[in-house]
Simulated scan of single mutants.
Amino acid sequence: MTERQPLHGLYAITPPGLTAAGDLALVEAALRGGAAFLQYRDKDADAANRLVTAHALRRLCHQFGARLLINDDLALALAVAADGVHLGAADGDLHAARQALPAGCLLGASCYGDFARARTAVAAGVDYVAFGSVYPSATKPLAQAAALSLFARCRSELGVPSCAIGGITVGNAPALLTAGADMLAVITDLFAAADVEARAAAYQSLFEDQRREFPQPAAV
Rank of each mutant, 00 (worst) to 15 (best):
T2L: 14
E3V: 14
P6K: 11
L10S: 08
Y11L: 12
Y11E: 11
T14V: 08
T14E: 08
P16Y: 06
P16M: 08
G17E: 02
A20G: 14
G22H: 07
L26D: 15
E28P: 10
A29R: 00
R32K: 07
G33P: 01
G33W: 01
A35G: 08
A36R: 07
Y40G: 00
Y40Q: 00
K43R: 11
D44A: 07
A47R: 14
N49K: 14
N49Y: 12
L51D: 13
T53V: 00
A54K: 09
G65N: 06
A66N: 13
L68Y: 09
A77L: 01
L78V: 15
A81F: 06
A82P: 06
G84R: 04
A89C: 10
R98E: 02
R98G: 03
Q99M: 11
A100N: 01
L101P: 05
P102W: 02
G104L: 05
L106E: 13
S110H: 05
C111K: 01
G113L: 10
G113K: 05
A116R: 07
A118L: 01
T120K: 15
A121W: 05
A123S: 01
A124F: 00
V126H: 03
G132S: 10
A146F: 13
A147Y: 09
L148N: 09
F151V: 09
C154L: 05
S156D: 15
S156H: 14
L158C: 00
L158F: 01
L158S: 00
V160F: 04
V160A: 01
P161G: 08
P161E: 00
A164P: 10
I165E: 12
G166H: 06
G167V: 09
G171Q: 15
A173H: 01
A175S: 10
T178M: 13
A179N: 05
G180K: 05
A181G: 02
M183I: 04
L184K: 05
A185S: 07
D189Q: 01
D189Y: 00
D189P: 00
A198N: 02
R199N: 13
Y203E: 03
Q204M: 05
S205A: 15
S205Q: 14
L206H: 06
Q210E: 11
R211D: 04
F214E: 14
P215D: 03
